[in-house]
């Protein structure tokens, strides 16, 4: 489904050991597994993996796909077209896209420095990039709130400038940017590392200036990775809950995110209504990732 997210896996092209499906047909009992290859454990590992996947992911998600239809199509529509729901969905999606777009140049900057620069403490910076990955979202939410609240270290000077961050949509976007940053850095980094320096050096010998090299040689090569990183950061930010709700202020129609609507509806035992919002989020994320995936393909004329 979320094709953009599986880029982490390096899937190898057809392996010479591939056992054709037909081979399994003419085997004696008990030798089916060995027909797959010389190694044992196919049946066992596939069985465990399928049980694990079905019990923990597929069946529960099945419930999410089916429950909303209890409302009927028109009921589902009514449930989703409440202004408060629409506002929350809009904030989650537009906020996530804005946050990822704003983070993109910073992610590129960090990836660039981590790959191309060598200085003491670089490894520490490298590890720091993963902080939003590792930091529990509630802790991140609390920290950002403390920092950007009107009396916080950064919130106070910003307030003096007339910028309110905490308890506004700006705070939501800030928290989304925080959780999305590592996705962009970690997607761009390996591609940048594999980018041959010779191409840039060749461009330099041909008389290109540094901005020209960056714009005409480096960025086009990185574009697919940047898009993929943008997609992953957005996907994460759309669903983000813990780091956002502390700083958001959660005012309906203004700074309330879609996941919070789900929580609220669940508290009112409106299961179908909650599932409807969940389903809408999944469907919209899927469409977004699909569009970005197609854009990536378009960018990479193979």
């Amino acid at each position: 489904m979320m094709a953009a997210c599986s880029t982490a896996f390096t899937s190898r092209a057809a392996d010479a050991m591939a056992a054709p499906p037909s081979a399994a047909l003419r085997t004696r009992p008990g030798s089916l597994a060995s027909r797959r290859g010389p190694l044992p454990g196919f049946g066992l590992s596939l069985g465990v993996a399928l049980f694990w996947l079905s019990a923990l992911v597929l069946i529960p998600l099945g419930a999410l796909l089916l429950r909303p239809w209890e409302l009927g199509v028109s009921g589902l529509w009514r449930s989703l077209s409440e202004p408060r729901v629409l506002a929350a969905l809009r904030l989650s999606f537009l906020g996530a896209l804005t946050a990822s777009a704003v983070t993109l140049p910073f992610g590129l900057l960090l990836a660039w420095v981590l790959v191309r620069d060598r200085f003491p403490g670089r490894r520490l910076l490298d590890a720091m990039v993963d902080l939003p990955f590792a930091l529990p979202t509630a802790v991140a939410g609390l920290a950002l709130t403390a920092l950007y609240a009107p009396n916080g270290w950064l919130g106070a000077p910003l307030a003096a400038l007339g910028v309110k961050v905490a308890y506004t949509p700006l705070g939501v976007i800030l928290a989304m940017a925080f959780v999305g940053l590592p996705f962009i850095v970690r997607t761009v980094e390996p591609v940048l590392r594999d980018l041959p320096r010779e191409a840039e050096e060749a461009a330099a010998t041909l008389g290109a200036s540094r901005p020209q090299i960056l714009w005409r040689v480096v960025l086009p090569a990185l574009a697919p990775a940047l898009l993929a990183g943008f997609a992953m950061a957005s996907a994460r930010a759309i669903g983000e809950y813990g780091s956002v709700i502390f700083i958001a202020g959660n005012m309906p129609m203004v700074s309330e995110i879609a996941p919070l609507v789900i929580v609220t509806r669940l508290e009112q035992f409106d299961y179908a209504g909650a599932a409807a919002v969940g389903l809408a989020m999944l469907a919209l994320s899927f469409l977004l990732l699909l569009a970005l995936n197609l854009a990536t393909r378009f960018w990479r004329p193979v």
Binding site: A16, M17, A19, A23, S34, R35, G37, P38
Partner: peptide, 13 residues
């Protein structure tokens, strides 16, 4: 492939 079949690492049809 022939060598691997002899070793039992691959299988003949």
């Amino acid at each position: 492939t022939l060598l691997r079949i002899l070793a039992g690492l691959d299988f003949a049809d």
